[in-house]
Amino acid sequence: MLDIIIESRKAQIVPGFEVKRILPYQLRRMVGPFIFMDHGGPVSIPTPTSTNLDVLPHPHIGLSTVSYLFSGNVTHRDSLGVEQVIRPGEVNWMTAGKGIAHSERFEDPAMLAGGELEMIQTWVALPEKDEESEPSFKNYTPDQLPIFTDTGIWMRLIAGNAYGLTNEVSTSSPMFYVHVVLNQGARFGLPQGHSERGAYIVRGSVEISGITYSAGKLMVFNNGVDPVIIAKENTILMMLGGEHLGERYIWWNFVSSRKERIEQAKEDWKQGRIILPPTDNEEYVPLPKDNSRPAGGPPPGALS
């Protein structure tokens, strides 16, 4: 029934800010098109350290970054000149395509006063035909993300299609991404019509076939199964998956179906050919040394 259980690991984004790293995992690199997943927080940020937690401008290719907040807010700036504050319940969807740089900074007075931050960031790999597309950015507000409720169940469709829901979020391949809140005792199932499906436990715990799974675990299910998920307590899940796109290489913030494209991206960043955000171009994250782990996701200084 379960293909694999992935236990989140600690990863340091910047000094003083640890996240739970879920994907990629050595034994399971992707779930559908999702190739990266971090869970940051909940954390209360002390005033003296707030600005030190800023994620400086850094590059991406070959993917879309998807930011979703439970609490707090973050200011996004990118090479296109976009400046967007993302708030809880919204989606920031940035498609890197052939190359983009962006930053994420904590500038809200409430955050600087020690407010709480909790967020999920994922990367969605692009189909080969879209890997060299023009970069783009879109913020989607809560009214664009449909909500479904039933006894003990609340859920919001972030992207794709699931449980009969669709929305305006533009995706490049068949997928689903859903925020689910379950009351204790609620029973829930997986969406149909997707070959790869997973459920990450943000908070709480669930029971499947008599076994209890706790927060911080990503449950990846075998194709064709239809288990009953029972909330053992009040629980938050992030459901995600879709159709597999084929193998991808991942090094630092770069994703591609071709090794040589990763090498080109490294050189492009070193030579300044990926433009910095015009309103945030005084500093940036340098390319890591070549001996950094190629499949470990961002090193310190790059959250997404």
Results as ranks from 00 to 15, higher is better:
Leu2His: 01
Ile4His: 04
Ile4Trp: 00
Ile4Met: 10
Ile5Pro: 00
Ile6Leu: 11
Glu7Thr: 13
Lys10Thr: 13
Lys10Val: 11
Gln12Leu: 04
Ile13Trp: 00
Glu18Val: 05
Pro24Arg: 12
Tyr25Cys: 13
Leu27His: 13
Leu27Thr: 10
Val31Pro: 06
Val31Tyr: 05
Gly32Pro: 07
Phe34Tyr: 12
Met37Asn: 01
Pro42Lys: 07
Val43Glu: 08
Pro46Trp: 06
Pro48Asn: 12
Val55Ala: 12
Val55Arg: 02
His58Val: 09
His60Arg: 04
Gly62Asn: 08
Leu69Thr: 10
Phe70Trp: 15
Asn73His: 00
Asn73Ala: 01
His76Val: 06
Ser79Ala: 12
Ser79Asn: 08
Gly81Asp: 12
Val82Ser: 15
Ile86Trp: 05
Arg87Asn: 14
Pro88Asn: 11
Gly89Gln: 08
Lys98Thr: 14
Glu107Ala: 10
Pro109Met: 07
Leu112Ile: 10
Ala113Cys: 08
Thr122Phe: 06
Ala125Glu: 02
Pro127Glu: 05
Glu128Gly: 00
Asp130Trp: 03
Glu134His: 09
Glu134Cys: 03
Ser136Trp: 02
Phe137Ile: 09
Phe137Glu: 10
Lys138Ile: 03
Tyr140Met: 10
Ile147Cys: 03
Phe148Gln: 14
Trp154Asp: 05
Met155Cys: 06
Ile158Trp: 00
Ala159Thr: 02
Asn161Gly: 05
Gly164Val: 06
Leu165Tyr: 02
Thr171Glu: 09
Val181Thr: 09
Ala186Cys: 04
Ala186Ile: 07
Glu196Asp: 12
Ile201Trp: 00
Ile201Thr: 01
Gly204Arg: 03
Gly204Leu: 05
Ser205Gln: 09
Ser205Lys: 07
Ser209Asp: 14
Ser209Met: 02
Gly210Asn: 01
Thr212Cys: 01
Thr212Gln: 09
Leu218Met: 12
Val220Asp: 11
Asp226Glu: 14
Pro227Asp: 12
Ala231Asp: 04
Ala231Lys: 01
Ile236Lys: 07
Ile236Pro: 00
Met238Glu: 13
Met238Trp: 10
Gly241Phe: 11
His244Ala: 14
His244Asn: 14
Arg248Gln: 08
Ile250Met: 15
Trp251Ile: 08
Ser256Cys: 08
Arg258Asp: 14
Glu260Pro: 00
Lys270Leu: 15
Arg273Thr: 07
Leu276Arg: 11
Glu282His: 04
Glu283Leu: 06
Glu283Cys: 03
Pro300Trp: 04
Pro300Phe: 05
